[in-house]
């Protein structure tokens, strides 16, 4: 199950501002469905952001990050046209990836 990521990367002065929106249920594992059965935990555990092939951030997440997570960050440098890539993996082995170019 590979999830898509919406990303926007914009150059503002000397920094590049990245905004990423992932689609993911982020189930905590503590909720129950209508029948009272527990819903299995399913959340993104690792998220990495790359500028070209250079890592600009690595996030470790718990289940307390909201469903359909949003992530905003800023890094120095970056030129219009460079690629910015966001990759995630979840606790069930799922992955998601998205790429954009800096505007």
């Amino acid at each position: 199950m590979a999830g898509r990521i919406k990303i926007r990367a914009q150059k503002k002065g000397n920094v590049t501002e990245v905004k990423a929106l992932m689609r993911h249920p982020m189930e905590t594992g503590m909720r129950k469905d209508q029948a009272g059965d527990p819903i299995a935990a399913h959340f993104i555990t690792e998220v990495s952001v790359f500028h070209g092939d250079q890592p600009v951030m690595q996030g470790h997440w718990g289940a307390a990050v909201s469903a359909n997570p949003f992530l905003g960050l800023r890094f120095a440098g970056g030129e219009a046209g460079d690629t910015v890539r966001v990759v995630w993996t979840d606790n069930q082995g799922g992955t998601g990836e998205g790429e954009t170019t800096i505007r």
Binding site: V15, K19, P55, V56, M57, Q58, G59, H60, W61, G62, A64, V65, S66, P69, F70, L71, G72, L73, R74, F75, A76, G77
Partner: peptide, 15 residues
Amino acid sequence: ASFDIPPSTEVYIET
């Protein structure tokens, strides 16, 4: 959540 930030990245996180 916990974020590792290399030196060239600004310490700025939104989530």
